[in-house]
Every structure is written in structure tokens, then in C-alpha cells.
Amino acid sequence: MKEEEINVFVNGVVHYFETMAVVPAEVSSPYLIDGLTGSIMEYTGVIGITGEYQGNVLFTAPVEMMAKLLALYDNQEASVGALLDLVGEIANTFSGNVREEFGADFQISPPLVAHGSPKEVRTAEGLQTYCIPILWLGMRANLIVALR
């Protein structure tokens, strides 16, 4: 998988923050992770991908960031349900961006959401998964690209 292709996902997230949040997000340098342990935060949205590449792309964020983001949507109560809903929304939004870029070959499933570690996601052994930190207002979310 090429850097441009992975950056399509990153741009999706950046675009989301640009549009929704007043302060833009910053992208830190991507690195490799072995499995998801340690990289998953409280709220995670997962999209599944089939086609030329197969696997998952995850957006995972801490509760504080989710609460701040939720606050941008007028008068929402920061319940677990609402936060899960939002993280699904974020995943949904940037997966839409991705579809635009990759075209029809790229099959993207509707997002799954998880509070805690998502059980459905399996990644290859070794340093095979990309983790891209997204920094916003001093908080950090991760975009995780686990595709083969």
C-alpha cells in the first residue's frame, strides 16, 4: 500500500476536523504497531474494507476528546451512547471521503462502533499496522490503518 493511499484516510480525518471543529487537527508522524493493544482508546469507530486491499481502518479517541467534539454539536449530553454515535459518525464521514477517492473497486462496510477494545478487528502479526496520531487541542486520537 502506498503512502498516498494511506494519506487519503488521514486527509479524511483532517478534513473532518477542519470542517467540524474550530481548531484544526495536527497529524503527527505515522509509525508501525504490532497489534492494537496500547493504541486503542475509549471510543472506536471501525470501517471494514474489501477489494484490492482488505482489512480495517479505525478511528479511536479518548473520552475527553469525544466529549469536546460532541460539544460542538449543540447541547448534546455526553452519554456513552451519544459518544459512540459520534465516533461512528466520524468514521462514517471520512469513509465517505475515501470512497470518493478510491472509486468503486473499494468496498467499504458501514462503520462499527466500540466502547473499549473492538473484538471484531484482527491485525497481522509483527509491525504491520500503521498508526497515525491525530492531535487536537492537546488531546490525541489515533487513526489506525490495518490493511493488506
Binding site: P30, Y31, L32
Partner: peptide, 21 residues
């Protein structure tokens, strides 16, 4: 230099790790 500019390096790093393995 943005994190996305660094992506090329991460991708190459992964390739080399795989080659070594």
C-alpha cells in the same frame, strides 16, 4: 513537514522490515 509527509518513510520502513523478515 506534516505527519502526512512522513508517511512515505513509514511505508518504506514497513517494506524493509518485511524484506528482512
Amino acid at each position: 513537514i506534516d505527519g502526512r509527509d512522513m508517511m512515505a518513510l513509514t511505508v518504506q520502513l514497513k517494506e524493509i522490515i518485511n524484506e528482512v523478515e
